[in-house]
C-alpha cells in the first residue's frame, strides 16, 4: 500500500467494570485476602482492523455506547489497547472535547501557550500564530481574563482556534462541528473544509448520516464494540439506514 496514515490492527480494549471501584487500601487488602477482587470484564472494542490512506476521510457511525469515542481515543493515544496495535503517521489534531487542557485560573493568553504545548507545539511557533488564534476565536477582549470566567462556548472557541492553528496530517473530530453560535460554527466549518482541501486524513464520529455522507468517503458502523460494516460511504449508508429503520 502507498502510505497509510493510520493503521489499526486487531485492536481490542477491555475495561474492568468492578461494581465498586476499589480505591482505598483497606478495602483492597480485605478483598485481596478474601480473594474477592473479581472484575466484570467488558470489551468496549473487539478485533477492530482497518487502514486509512493519506487524505481519506472516515465517518464512524453507531449508537450510543457502541465504542465510537473509545476508538477515537485509542487512535489519539489516550487509551492504550489491551490487544492489537495502532500506527499513526503524522501530526494528529484531536478535536475531542475542546479545551480539556485549559487551566481555569490561567488567563486566556496563558492558556493559548499551555494548551498549545499540550498539543506538542513549541513556544516560538505559538507566539508567531498568537494573533491569528485570537483573531479566529474572536475573544480579543477576553485574553487577559481568567478562564474560569469564560462561558463554555468561549472555551470551545478558543480550544478550536488553538487546535486548528497548525495544519495537521490527521484530524480527529468528535461532533465538534457543533461548536459555539451559528456564526462561529460557520467559521469553524469553513476551516475544517479548508483542511479537507489540503488532503488531511480525517476520522469523524457522528450520529448524523447526512453529515457523514457529505464529509466522508469511507464509513464504518460500530455495534457493541464490533465493526459490522466498513467500506465506501454509500454502501455503508445503506446498511445503516436498514439498521436504524
Amino acid at each position: 500500500m502507498a502510505n497509510p496514515a493510520i493503521k489499526v490492527e486487531d485492536v481490542s480494549i477491555r475495561f474492568n467494570l468492578s461494581k465498586e471501584k476499589t480505591d482505598s487500601l483497606k478495602e483492597y487488602v480485605i478483598k485481596f485476602l478474601k480473594r474477592e477482587i473479581k472484575y466484570d470484564e467488558f470489551w468496549a472494542l473487539k478485533n477492530i482492523s482497518f487502514e486509512l490512506q493519506k487524505g481519506e476521510r472516515l465517518g464512524i457511525l453507531g449508537l450510543n455506547g457502541a465504542g465510537k469515542s473509545t476508538l477515537l481515543k485509542i487512535i489519539a493515544g489516550v487509551y492504550k489497547p489491551s490487544v492489537g496495535t495502532v500506527e499513526r503517521h503524522g501530526r494528529i489534531a484531536p478535536l475531542l472535547e475542546l479545551g480539556a487542557g485549559f487551566d481555569m485560573q490561567y488567563t486566556g493568553k496563558e492558556n493559548v501557550y499551555l494548551y498549545g504545548s499540550v498539543l506538542g507545539l513549541n513556544r516560538d511557533f505559538l507566539a508567531s500564530k498568537y494573533d491569528e488564534i485570537v483573531e479566529f476565536s474572536g475573544l480579543k477582549k477576553f485574553m487577559d481574563v481568567p478562564m474560569k470566567n469564560y462561558s463554555s462556548g468561549m472555551r470551545a472557541r478558543l480550544g478550536f482556534a488553538i487546535a486548528t492553528v497548525v495544519n495537521p496530517d490527521i484530524l480527529i473530530l468528535d461532533e465538534v462541528l457543533a461548536v459555539g453560535d451559528s456564526k462561529f460554527r460557520k467559521k469553524s466549518e469553513n476551516r475544517v473544509m479548508e483542511m479537507f482541501g489540503k488532503g488531511v486524513t480525517v476520522l469523524f464520529v457522528s450520529h448524523s448520516l447526512e453529515q457523514v455522507r457529505s464529509l466522508c468517503n469511507k464509513a464504518m458502523i460500530l455495534e457493541n464494540g464490533q465493526m459490522i460494516a466498513y467500506g465506501d460511504t454509500e454502501k455503508v449508508a445503506r446498511v445503516y439506514k436498514m439498521k436504524t429503520e
Binding site: D103, Q105, Y106, E110, L114, S117, G120, L121
Partner: peptide
C-alpha cells in the same frame, strides 16, 4: 524533546499559580 516546551509550561504554571 517534542514535549519539552510543555514541561517548561507546566513548571511555569506551577510557579505562577502558586502565589497568584
Amino acid at each position: 524533546m517534542r514535549y519539552r516546551y510543555l514541561l517548561a509550561e507546566l513548571v511555569k504554571k506551577g510557579i505562577k499559580l502558586k502565589y497568584r
